[in-house]
Design a protein around this nucleic acid. Structure first.
Lengths: 341, 341
DNA sequence: ATGAAAGCGCTAACAA
DNA sequence: TTGTTAGCGCTTTCAT
């Protein structure tokens, strides 16, 4: 009874050929509606389920999209994933998701595994660690479309989806300066990733534009892991010139900074004004509420999914659209403004 | 050059049979080490990659585990997923992840899709909506192992991994009572899910034990979505008896409650003491810091992954171990205690 | 220790 | 419109 029924079984039951069954099930135009109906009816009746293994082998495609993210358990990433999943699922693609845990080595292994699994396309946000991109060559070689989002790299023919990080960094910093800050610190992620490098660029641009000196003391490069928040706190406490403005490349890290700074007696925003990044829900929970850059994660996921699927369907040529920039926005809250009362 | 090389190609190159190649690549004992080496060497040299489609078809298994979660973009869920992914990946399983978005209908579709994709096992945390479990029958019928975590249901032969929600609810409530609360409100999730029903049971148990009357006004059933926080705030504001203790089934919702209550003039913990659930990072960001129940999400993921893999390997029989309870812990912070100063 | 050959279940080119 | 048949690439039984 639970023996699997194949198209051969169906063919036999209905006195047609397996090919006719296959065509009917795939709604092939050359089959008469009548037999189509007959076959589909029977198929449902006996609980026929197509064997994807066989179909995949025959088609050399899997209706599956691979995704590699640095970490699954981050609000930002899981929001992007939710967006990707939403669109992929709608059109019948499944997602094979894996995490690199910020390790280049694991990213390479994941890329290989996904390649072997026969994913039709790969979406990826790079690990901080990654400095060599050979593991993607197998994809391009086999013409498997590759799309980078958020943590991107410019590879020939691989589209990227991101925001204008430099502009965002510039706006955040300019805002801090406008609020009266003159000794700014930027807490950055790994500068090897262009998104962080770009935010830093924007930061410097704003300083320069306002005749503020830039030295290496204006930058603290970290892994943005709240576990290591103490490094940042110590840096700020021990800074020779009193830091009065903080631009942090992640809300989560920024919120933890605020909390810890408050513990050691700093007043936010009076002593130090803070702007974060991402508009994570935590930015509205922390008190004072955190100024930040709105980063449309869900939308980015939707767009990444849609782009790759459109490409797989052949309806657009991704090679030509090489970079998609999403709109960001500075959101000003209490953490960076003079309190009126 | 990028033409795919098969075992036939290798066989030809090395003047052996495809069978020998296949056996060598799978490290079959009956092949001499010498030819094994020769074949593996050649395979690497020419960049041979096994075609999973063909292997899957032949083996009728995919080295793939399906996962259905209510929402991808929740700290708690993505933490569990991170745990599952970690162990699965280590032993060569890939994860196909999909989200039900709290809809029974989508859960059913996901279950079907994953079944068709030929997952070797399914891990699932139920949608709030789900009230009928027929969509899992196809799995049990085909002897595909099924494991429920967090949002579980008792199905024959399906193990479940969860914490003792009743005990946790009891402890949280008892703690509030010990802190002097006498008019408690429990903000629950959908009571159709046993985890919420159990927390509520524990809540009632604690009230009863302390001779506190239980009426329906002690319970507010919600979807725990911060978007709908206002419902809870209104409920609290309009309550005839002044609520002085709040046990909320989610930290995220609890944190938003605190924030909004403060906005309308309530003092936390002076007016209302609050205990949340999950030990989400937000619980240490909100001020006052939120008392909560530590819920070992990452560990739950690890365990879910390990259990299902052990079962797939035949090394343990999951049918016998039907329920795994993880340890929880009440964490007391400022949101539920009298401030000394 | 190795090889020959029959599947696994579906698809598609070619025929009818 | 439908059927025949040859793959897709790997695994495995049965010989040798």
């Amino acid at each position: 009874m639970s023996k699997k029924v194949t198209i051969y079984d169906l063919a036999e039951m209905l006195n047609v050929s397996p090919a006719t069954v296959s065509r009917s099930l795939n709604n092939h135009p050359s089959i008469s509606d009548k037999t189509k109906q007959r076959i589909i009816l029977k198929a449902n009746e006996v609980g026929y389920r197509t064997n994807k293994f066989a179909a995949n082998l025959s088609n050399q495609k899997s209706n599956t999209i691979g995704v590699i993210v640095p970490k699954l358990n981050s609000y930002f990433m899981s929001t992007i994933l939710a967006g990707i999943e939403k669109v992929a699922n709608k059109v019948g693609y499944s997602l094979i998701i894996s995490q690199s845990l910020e390790s280049e080595e694991k990213e390479k292994i994941n890329a290989k595994t996904l390649l072997d699994s026969g994913v039709d396309a790969l979406l990826i946000s790079l690990a901080n660690d990654t400095s060599d991109y050979k593991h993607f060559e197998n994809y391009t070689k086999r013409k498997i479309p590759l799309l980078f989002f958020d943590r991107v790299i410019d590879l020939p023919n691989c589209p990227t989806i991101l925001i204008d990080n430099e502009a965002a960094g510039y706006e955040a910093t300019k805002h801090l300066i406008a609020q009266g800050c003159s000794n700014l610190l930027h807490i950055s992620g790994n500068l090897q990733r262009t998104l962080y490098a770009d935010r830093y660029k924007g930061f410097k641009h704003a300083l320069l534009e306002n005749q503020l000196k830039i030295t290496e003391t204006n930058l603290l490069e970290t892994d943005l892991d709240p576990k290591n928040i103490q490094v940042a706190i110590d840096y700020i406490k021990n800074s020779t010139k009193k830091i009065d403005g903080l631009f942090v490349a992640s809300d989560n890290f920024a919120a933890n900074c605020i909390k810890e700074l408050q513990k050691v007696g700093f007043k936010i925003p009076e002593d130090i004004k803070v702007v974060g990044f991402n508009n994570d829900p935590v930015s509205e929970i922390i008190s004072p509420n955190l100024s930040t850059i709105e980063y449309p994660g869900y939308k980015m996921g939707i767009l990444a999914g849609e782009s790759i699927i459109a490409h797989l369907n052949g309806s657009i040529n991704l090679q030509s659209t090489n970079t998609i920039l999403l709109r960001h926005k500075l959101i000003v809250r209490e953490s960076s403004t003079q309190q009126p009362e």
